[in-house]
Simulated assay, not measured.
Amino acid sequence: MRLHHLMLAAAVLVSGRAAAQDSPRPRANDERVSSGLGAVGLHFQVTEPKGEFAANTNNGFGLGGYVIRALDPNKILNLRADFSFVSYANSRRRIPLAGTGGLVQLDLRTSSNIVSVVAGPQLLGPTGAFTPYATALGGFSVFWTESNVEGSQNVNSPFARTTNASDAVWAYGGAVGSYVRVTGGNFPVRLDLGARFLRHDDARYLTSDRVRQAFENDATPVPVRGRADFITNDLGANIIAF
């Protein structure tokens, strides 16, 4: 009787394992599968200058995007490529067109911007409704300031443009944040909340004060040179696309 019971239990166990192997796992219950092999993201950015850069500039605003690709089956180690554009200083001045006796007025607009292109490994924590991440980043940033002139009735149609200063420098740092799942399906969407720190050891850039002094003295603006560090606060969406 005991042997009969053991044979019955073994048969049930074998049939259960076979059924589990034949039927696919539910996608909703497999968080690692639902994390996908790759994702794209887009976020709104607000920068906070640090150190001597904070003494010369104010907060910046812009947009950023990135691509993430898993490097291991568990999607813990990933490669992230990051791109961002922020503007940290803008001004608008009315100037008369020479030879018109002040009857024709022009707009002189000056903007100071930073483009950063960085990449590096990203580690994902436990995947679920809330997924933390940490990233090491390295690459370069371009600091530049340009001025353009346009008519008061021709907004965003400048007829003269000059780059006042530009500099490309190495950038390195890291980012931390978390993904918060919003929707499921074939292309899950997650809210991306994060912060990124980038360091630039020797950058040349113009400030609002240097631009104002150049305008008032009718002279070429002289860039500030030094370390330029800032934290970028990100708020956006992460889409598991492939």
Rank of each mutant, 00 (worst) to 15 (best):
F143Y: 12
G120T: 09
R93W: 09
I68M: 04
Y133G: 11
T110N: 04
N156Y: 00
Q153R: 14
E146N: 15
N56L: 15
Q122D: 00
D107Y: 11
V142T: 11
G65A: 05
V46E: 05
Y133Q: 10
T145I: 06
N90K: 10
G41D: 12
L124Y: 13
G64T: 03
G125M: 01
L123V: 14
I114N: 01
I76M: 15
V149T: 14
V86T: 14
K50C: 07
V40Y: 04
L124I: 01
Q122C: 02
A89R: 10
A98N: 11
G151R: 14
F53H: 09
D82L: 06
S87D: 04
Y88F: 14
T57D: 09
Q122P: 02
G120R: 01
P49W: 00
S112V: 06
S157T: 14
S111Q: 12
D82Y: 03
L42G: 13
Q122Y: 04
L79C: 12
A134T: 09
S84F: 09
S111C: 00
Q45P: 08
A134M: 13
V40C: 03
Y133K: 12
F44H: 03
I68S: 15
F61K: 10
F143N: 04
V46S: 00
H43L: 07
S141L: 02
G128C: 08
A129C: 08
T131R: 07
N58E: 15
V117H: 05
V104M: 01
S111H: 12
V46K: 02
F130T: 12
N90F: 02
F130D: 00
V155Q: 06
N113D: 14
V155I: 12
G128L: 01
F44G: 08
G125P: 11
S152N: 14
G151I: 06
Q153P: 00
F83H: 10
F53G: 07
T100R: 08
V117T: 08
G101E: 00
L137A: 04
F143W: 07
F83I: 08
S116M: 00
G51A: 03
V40T: 11
F53W: 09
L137H: 02
N113Y: 13
D82Q: 12
D82N: 09
V155G: 08
I68N: 14
N90H: 09
G99W: 05
A70H: 03
R69A: 10
F159C: 10
F83M: 07
N59S: 12
A119M: 02
G138Y: 05
S112F: 07
G60A: 15
E146A: 15
R69P: 08
Q105I: 02
D72Y: 02
T135Y: 01
Y66W: 11
F53C: 09
N56H: 15
F85D: 00
R80Q: 04
